[in-house]
Amino acid sequence: MFRQLADSGSPSFLVYIDGSETVARPGDTVAAVLLRTAPGIARHTPVGETPRAPYCMMGVCFDCLATVDGETSVQTCLVEARPGMRIQRQKGKVRITP
């Protein structure tokens, strides 16, 4: 959905989105990394289980919610990516029973 402009000099590190290694750079928010990683979404909603991507990038829409290092429903546009971070896209309603 988005792509990062080439910048050879910039250092990078790895984060894990749904277990897959993904390149992130200093200054990236988790939402920015999600937007450039296919399919560019953060979650499926708990209400209608429809796909959503980050919408406002400034903390007011709550559509960029994802699980970050085990913490659910984190506003990923307010959190900077850090090396080794584990990010999971949320998939609809949380099921308490297996």
Binding site: M1, F2, R3, Q4, L5, D7, R25, G27, D28, T29, A32, L35, R36, P39, G40, I41, P51, R52, A53, P54, Y55, C56, M57, M58, C77
Partner: peptide
């Protein structure tokens, strides 16, 4: 997904040089 605000896209340019 793919619909967002202009401000959001500008923030992505600022934080991540992302288009």
């Amino acid at each position: 997904p793919g619909v967002m605000t202009v401000g959001a896209a500008q923030i992505l340019l600022k934080t991540s040089a992302q288009i």
